[in-house]
């Protein structure tokens, strides 16, 4: 029995095959790649992108896009670090509100969600294309981050907070557990809830979804809110890993997350794709980044290679759509 390249199993496993070939290729060229230290390091690194990308998957499944996730990550990371370090002071009331690690994390997640909801509100209320609305948020959030931090990193956030990014539980890095938890939540949402089915329906055909009674605006609001929340979780991971919030944290992370989503087989025109695919996409991006560094490829060439990989993924996606 022969299996052609057009066989459904091959088509479904395109990303996984690509990942396998990539790992094989890099491990042949670098003996450091397949070491446990390096592989854990790769997983720790991709945890941030996984969190952002699963949020982005929901947005792209709905035929939307969120360019603001990187900036939202930066802003929520800075706020989380700022609250943890300096709390809130109210001079007129002679009141100081301090935040525990849990408090700072919750505040960051809520702010991330609020920023995402704002994106959704602008998109649904004013019928502004997601590209434009989230591009505006990208700039706003980046500016607010610079204002909040005055361009200076907020460091020394304490060992408890650092544990989130650098610690291990049962021999697995904490960020990997957190990203796994986030993935499971989003998988549950997409596979086991009507909310998830609505997202696919809106992405597949928004008009038909509307006519069948789905409250499109509410779903869009919720999805952008989740994307903002996931970006905030990514921000917490980045900050805790460095034990410092950098004013330029998350710069161009939106591109990596869109790349992960596209490479993972989610169609930019919406309605088709899986969270599992996105996770594989994020792993491919992470392995590619790691491999290029191990192979001592110049950072300039790394960008070129990553761009080509994204382009190839989109071309394959388009060809698949045509074949259908």
């Amino acid at each position: 029995m022969t299996i052609s390249l057009n066989h459904p199993i091959i088509k479904k496993s395109q990303s996984l095959i690509a990942l396998f070939l990539l790992c094989l290729f890099i491990s042949l060229l670098s003996d450091k790649f397949m070491t446990s230290t390096n592989l854990w390091n790769v997983l720790r690194q991709i945890s941030v992108n996984v969190c952002i990308s699963v949020g982005m998957t929901l947005v792209v499944l709905m035929a939307g896009i969120d360019l603001s996730v990187g900036s939202v990550l930066g802003l929520t990371a800075a706020i989380c670090a700022g609250l943890l370090k300096s709390g809130l002071s109210f001079e007129s009331m002679d009141l100081f509100v301090g935040f525990s690690v849990l408090g700072a994390i919750l505040a960051a997640i809520l702010i991330g969600m609020a920023l995402g909801l704002f994106n959704g509100w602008v998109i649904t209320k004013f019928s502004i294309p997601p590209f434009v609305a989230t591009l505006a948020m990208l700039t706003i959030a980046r500016g607010l981050t610079m204002l909040y931090t005055a361009g200076i990193p907020i460091s020394n956030l304490g060992p408890e907070f650092e544990f989130i990014g650098s610690g291990w539980i049962l021999g697995i890095p904490v960020p990997v557990w957190i990203s796994l938890f986030m993935v499971l939540i989003v998988v549950f949402l997409t596979k086991k809830t009507t909310f998830g089915r609505y997202i696919y329906a809106i992405g597949g055909n928004e008009k038909a979804a509307f006519l069948s009674g789905i409250s499109i605006n509410k779903i869009k609001l919720a999805v952008y809110g989740i994307a903002g929340m996931m970006a905030a979780v990514g921000g917490i991971l980045v900050t805790s890993r460095l034990n410092s919030a950098q004013p330029n944290a998350g710069m161009s992370y939106e591109l990596d997350s869109i790349a992960a989503v596209v490479i993972g087989g989610t169609s930019l025109s919406g309605g088709v794709g899986t969270v599992a695919g996105t996770v594989i996409g994020a792993v491919i991006i992470g392995v590619l980044n790691n491999g290029l560094v191990l192979l001592d490829v110049s950072p300039f060439w790394q960008q070129v290679v990553k761009g080509i990989v994204i382009l190839l993924a989109v071309i394959i996606d388009k060809m698949n759509q045509k074949n259908k």
Partner: peptide
């Protein structure tokens, strides 16, 4: 419970 474990209050002048 989350709120109680998240924030604490002090006099700003003491801080």
């Amino acid at each position: 419970i989350l709120g109680y474990n998240s924030v604490y209050f002090k006099k700003l002048s003491d801080v």
